[in-house]
Computed example of a mutant assay.
Amino acid sequence: MNKYLLFLLVACQGYTVLAQDNKTPYMTKSLSGSSVKSVFVRTSGGSIAVSGGGENPRIEVYISGNNGNGNISSDEIKKRLADYVLEVTADNGEVHAVAKPKTKGFFNWNSSLNISFKVFVPKQVTTDLGTSGGSIHLDNLTGKQTFQTSGGSLHMDRLTGVIHGRTSGGSIHVSNSGQDIDLATSGGSINAANCIGHIRLETSGGSLQLEGLQGNIDATTSGGSIRGNSINGELITSTSGGSINLTQLSCALEASTSAGSFHAQFNSVGKYVKIDVSSGHIDLDLPSKQGVDLDLRGNKVEPNFTGNFEGTKEKEKVQGKLNGGGPLVQVRGNGRVNLTVN
């Protein structure tokens, strides 16, 4: 059994302890010789980063002050650590890193610490991460990743597997990842790029930026705009407080906004299109050679196409088959609806 006790309240013999400059780790422990399969990290005041697939598996501990002076001496850190539990162990393939005050509810801003962890492990690993005061970064991992923060942002790149992340006070950035993505924030924007699979994104207070997504995508915001480009598969998206602008679509689409305008440009229409806009104009651009069934309704509907159309065109409604018919394109709006086919 390989078991490493990195730290218990004070630095143990054999570990390098340095004064902090926010760039140099306070302590580093090598994990070479350990077959790491899972990582568990909890800290009450710092950030967490887990990176996979690199050389020299290790854990780095960063400690700084919270009282406006991040750079403090190792002696001052040792003194303040008397009020903390700080321990890291590696046992039977499981890495545990925990930093928390000894006393529940303890907080003294002048003597508190910001304790962060950077973990470097093999690519195939699962994580369970939590912090109440910092950001979380994950990179180049395969497996199940579960993580949450109450006061920071989430950053993910090159993850494969089940990805479940939550933040109450920060933005979310995910790229080059896939299979099963479930991410939510209560107070920030979401940026997702080059991802594939089942993708669920939710924010209560920010915008959505979607780029190069493929699969079944469900992206919602209660307080921001939505922008998307190069989406394939199926996209369900909505906002209560902003506009929607989508380009280079090759997907089925269900989209709605309660307080903004709407624009969508399709390279090809998927199984269906359903658009609902309560208080803005709608611009819809469809490919010229594809057959679709049209059901468009608004305060004023302005069709702009010269293809083979069978149906009715009225001021507030266009209904019928374009180019022989196909997937249903349904639009409901209280403003102007502009349809362009080219």
Results as ranks from 00 to 15, higher is better:
residue 100 K to D: 05
residue 54 G to I: 12
residue 94 E to K: 14
residue 138 L to M: 15
residue 137 H to Y: 13
residue 87 E to Y: 14
residue 86 L to C: 11
residue 152 G to W: 01
residue 116 S to I: 09
residue 127 T to E: 02
residue 144 K to E: 12
residue 77 I to E: 02
residue 103 T to A: 07
residue 124 Q to N: 15
residue 74 S to W: 04
residue 125 V to R: 06
residue 98 V to A: 08
residue 147 F to W: 04
residue 45 G to I: 02
residue 137 H to P: 00
residue 140 N to A: 10
residue 107 F to K: 13
residue 102 K to H: 01
residue 167 T to A: 13
residue 69 N to T: 07
residue 98 V to M: 10
residue 88 V to G: 15
residue 166 R to S: 08
residue 117 F to Y: 15
residue 78 K to A: 02
residue 91 D to A: 12
residue 89 T to R: 15
residue 155 H to T: 01
residue 90 A to D: 09
residue 168 S to T: 09
residue 120 F to M: 00
residue 142 T to Q: 15
residue 44 S to N: 12
residue 53 G to V: 11
residue 126 T to F: 00
residue 44 S to V: 08
residue 167 T to P: 08
residue 163 I to E: 12
residue 77 I to Y: 03
residue 158 R to Q: 14
residue 73 S to D: 00
residue 153 S to G: 09
residue 114 N to V: 10
residue 134 G to A: 11
residue 106 F to G: 02
residue 120 F to P: 01
residue 168 S to F: 09
residue 142 T to H: 12
residue 89 T to H: 14
residue 100 K to E: 12
residue 154 L to N: 04
residue 93 G to E: 02
residue 45 G to F: 07
residue 143 G to P: 01
residue 131 T to P: 15
residue 167 T to W: 08
residue 116 S to W: 03
residue 143 G to R: 01
residue 58 R to V: 00
residue 165 G to Y: 02
residue 129 L to Y: 02
residue 100 K to A: 04
residue 173 H to W: 09
residue 121 V to S: 02
residue 126 T to L: 05
residue 146 T to G: 03
residue 117 F to N: 03
residue 125 V to K: 02
residue 150 S to G: 13
residue 150 S to K: 00
residue 55 E to R: 12
residue 145 Q to F: 07
residue 74 S to R: 05
residue 100 K to F: 01
residue 167 T to H: 09
residue 131 T to N: 11
residue 162 V to H: 13
residue 111 S to A: 09
residue 134 G to H: 07
residue 143 G to I: 06
residue 165 G to H: 06
residue 104 K to C: 04
residue 99 A to F: 11
residue 166 R to A: 08
residue 54 G to S: 10
residue 165 G to S: 03
residue 88 V to I: 06
residue 141 L to Y: 05
residue 118 K to T: 07
residue 93 G to I: 03
residue 94 E to R: 14
residue 103 T to K: 08
residue 53 G to I: 08
residue 72 I to R: 07
residue 66 N to K: 14
residue 105 G to S: 10
residue 122 P to R: 03
residue 133 G to S: 14
residue 125 V to S: 09
residue 90 A to P: 06
residue 89 T to N: 14
residue 63 I to M: 04
residue 66 N to Y: 03
residue 110 N to W: 10
residue 125 V to C: 01
residue 120 F to T: 00
residue 124 Q to P: 00
residue 93 G to Y: 04
residue 75 D to S: 00
residue 155 H to S: 12
residue 153 S to T: 04
residue 79 K to G: 02
residue 127 T to R: 00
residue 141 L to W: 10
residue 172 I to A: 08
residue 128 D to F: 05
residue 84 Y to V: 03
